[in-house]
């Protein structure tokens, strides 16, 4: 029984994990004006963040097409089953494209294997941990159903925290969610946000970056029963490494990795976003 795993480019997975588990990544698209790039394929993270700073127009993102998913699923036709874990449906239409493609393949009723599509309600390493949980289950011989359940469970046990320099990018990109209440103060703030139930929500609004980072650290280390932690950043690798070091010191038994956010995430958070994904133990 061969079960293959698919996710999308917003999972921010470490390349070594992608290789080890043979995970297929479906890229989302980034549009700078009329130019369209496939995330992580035509446009690397370094190039993107350099352009994000320079570009006068705010880049936009778009979900993969149904045909992209069909092509991926067809390419995995040798497998007995496919588990496809994706960015939350409240943040992106990606999940719809995946579901439509899976349905079309089923209706075609040919030799393609059954596809189980999982809406993680997560993004970045929140999605990454869900995907890894499925990969680990498959590696231990789990069925597609069990692997999908493992992904869902890990997604529910994960939280993604985020600090941004400005809410402007989230607002313009239409992803502000319940953090809308944090808009519109005359004072400078560095909002601390959380991706909760698939939606951005405001936690609090410290007025300096340092306080925001301090609060982020507190929220990370006070999360009960952490199993693994991913520190997320866009353009501030040194800050992310420093935070990771502090978290490792505070939680010596918890693996802490550092991930640079996908441009698709970066478009919506703005350049200086810093965050963390924490998977709690079951």
């Amino acid at each position: 029984m061969t079960v293959r795993l698919v996710t999308d480019s917003t999972a921010d997975l470490d390349p070594s994990d992608i290789d080890r588990y043979g995970i297929t990544i479906v890229p989302l698209n980034i549009h700078f004006g009329a130019d369209v790039y496939r995330d992580g394929v035509d446009l690397g993270k370094d190039q993107f963040y350099a352009r994000l700073g320079e570009s006068a127009v705010l880049p936009r993102t778009s979900q993969p097409g149904v045909s992209d998913f069909q092509a991926v699923y067809e390419s995995l036709a040798h497998a007995d089953a496919i588990v496809s874990v994706h960015i939350g449906g409240k943040l992106s239409g990606t999940i719809n494209a995946a579901q439509t493609a899976a349905k079309l393949l089923t209706e075609r009723d040919d030799a393609t294997p059954p596809v189980i599509v999982v809406d993680s309600d997560q993004a970045s390493m929140g999605l990454g941990f869900a995907t890894l949980a499925a990969a680990e289950a498959i590696a231990q011989g789990a069925s597609a159903q069990d692997a999908a359940a493992a992904a869902q469970s890990a997604a529910r046990r994960s939280r993604v925290l985020l600090i941004v320099d400005t809410l402007e990018y989230l607002q313009k990109g239409g992803r502000i969610g319940r953090a809308r209440a944090f808009l519109g103060t005359l004072l400078r703030t560095k909002p601390v946000l959380e991706l909760a139930a698939g939606e951005i929500q405001g936690i609090e609004r410290p007025r300096t970056r340092q306080k925001a980072v301090e609060r982020l650290f507190e929220l990370i280390v006070r999360t009960p029963k952490p199993r693994r932690i991913g520190i997320l950043h866009g353009t501030t690798p040194a800050e992310a490494e420093a935070l990771a070091t502090r978290v490792r010191d505070a939680l010596p038994n918890v693996p802490v990795t550092v991930h640079r956010c996908s441009p698709v995430i970066g478009v919506h958070t703005g350049p200086a976003a810093l965050g963390a994904a924490i998977e709690r133990a079951p």
Binding site: A181, I203, K211
Partner: peptide, 8 residues
Amino acid sequence: ALAAWDRT
């Protein structure tokens, strides 16, 4: 104080 008000 309001800046440190954790809504959650």
